[in-house]
């Protein structure tokens, strides 16, 4: 083992002293030849014969050198370096072509990187700050006589949440706009109506205050509370550390600010940044069409589930949700 290390070190060192070692080898072999010739001369050979005999008994000089070099350094690295040098020489010989080629490669790689990071942002990891989003799926419903998919209703959500065993999280949310008035300024702001487990299920922890508590999404206009985004907190409330507990009018109804979402959390709509979240119990304030939490026919909310694992995804999912479907429709 120690010998192996020594050999490796020796070979590595040889990489950096190649010229010197090459001269060394030349000198050594030359001295060998001279001594051999001298000996042969003393044996009474002619100068020509002495030389020929010395070469003969030595064997191939260049061959020997080649074997010697392989043994001395690290041939793989040396040939790689040689190839690199050769490549650079070729590139330098036709600079126009080289620049064109390099330009093409740069553009190609750049474009690829751009597209990939875009795709990653949109498709693979669309929701910053959400844990395990690779297992997050959107759940849609279908209705008889209608093509395409629809959203789901609140009673559906409750039933599915109760009866599906494949998900470790099941949330719903609905994007909506509202008028936010602070002092004498009013502006349109985008927010979400969500189920009470929203923040817990996504693994998003408010940096101030709390998320919604179980039960805050039931009832009719019973829980006027809101969690605001980090951006809104910074921009419209100047990062007020005493923000929790203050009132904010949303669509004219006073809401208590109970939490501030962490920086980088924008909600769960691709391409949109949410600025506040309210529990589903406040639905009527923000949605047209009245109170819908008890109406199974009102398909107004989008569902997301996080699978426990990816295995047998489609089959199991479908079976599990299908199995609970008859129960739902029997009750409706």
């Amino acid at each position: 083992m120690r010998e192996l290390c020594r050999t490796l070190l020796y070979r590595l060192a040889a990489l950096f002293r190649r010229r010197h070692l090459e001269d060394d080898l030349d000198a050594e072999l030359r001295s060998h030849m001279e001594m051999a010739i001298e000996l042969n001369l003393r044996k009474g050979m002619s100068a020509e014969d002495a030389r020929r005999e010395a070469l003969r008994s030595f064997g191939g000089v260049e061959q020997t050198k080649e074997i010697y070099r392989d043994q001395r350094g690290l041939p793989m690295i040396e040939t790689t370096l040689q190839d690199l040098r050769f490549g650079l020489r070729i590139l330098r010989r036709s600079p126009g072509f080289s620049i064109l080629a390099i330009l093409c490669l740069t553009l190609g790689i750049g474009a690829n990187a751009a597209v990939f990071s875009w795709i990653e942002g949109i498709l693979f990891r669309p929701y910053p700050a959400v844990t395990h989003q690779e297992r997050l799926l959107a759940l849609t419903g279908t209705a008889r006589g209608e093509s395409g998919s629809t959203s789901i209703s609140w009673p559906d959500f409750l039933d599915l949440q109760r009866s599906c065993t494949l998900f470790d999280a099941f949330i719903v949310n609905k994007i909506m706009g509202t008028t936010l008035s602070i002092g004498d300024r009013a502006e349109r702001t985008i927010g979400s109506i969500v189920s009470a487990n929203y923040f817990d299920a996504l693994g998003v922890h408010p940096i101030l205050g709390r998320g919604f508590e179980p039960g805050e999404d039931s009832g009719r206009n019973t829980h006027p509370v809101t969690v605001i985004s980090y951006q809104l907190w910074k921009a419209r409330f100047n990062g007020d550390p005493q923000i929790i507990g203050k009132m904010q009018r949303l669509n004219g109804v006073p809401h208590t600010i109970i939490g501030v979402a962490p920086e980088g959390f924008y909600g769960t709509f691709v391409g949109w940044g949410m600025h506040f979240w309210v529990p589903a119990s406040m639905e009527e304030i923000f949605e047209a069409g009245g109170y819908k939490l008890e109406d199974r026919g009102a398909r107004w909310i989008e569902a997301y589930v996080r699978l426990k694992c990816w295995s047998l995804l489609s089959i199991w999912c479908r079976r599990d949700t299908m199995r609970s479907a008859p129960r739902i429709f029997k009750t409706s």
Binding site: R2, E3, R6, T7, Y10, R11, L25, E28, L29, H32, A36, S57, F58, G59, G60, V61, Q63, T64, I67, Y68, D70, Q71, R72
Partner: peptide, 17 residues
């Protein structure tokens, strides 16, 4: 043996210390 083969051998032995 060809005398030349001696030199790589010497190198190998030297590398091993």
């Amino acid at each position: 043996l060809n005398q030349g083969t001696l030199y790589p051998a010497l190198l190998r032995i030297e590398q091993r210390g």
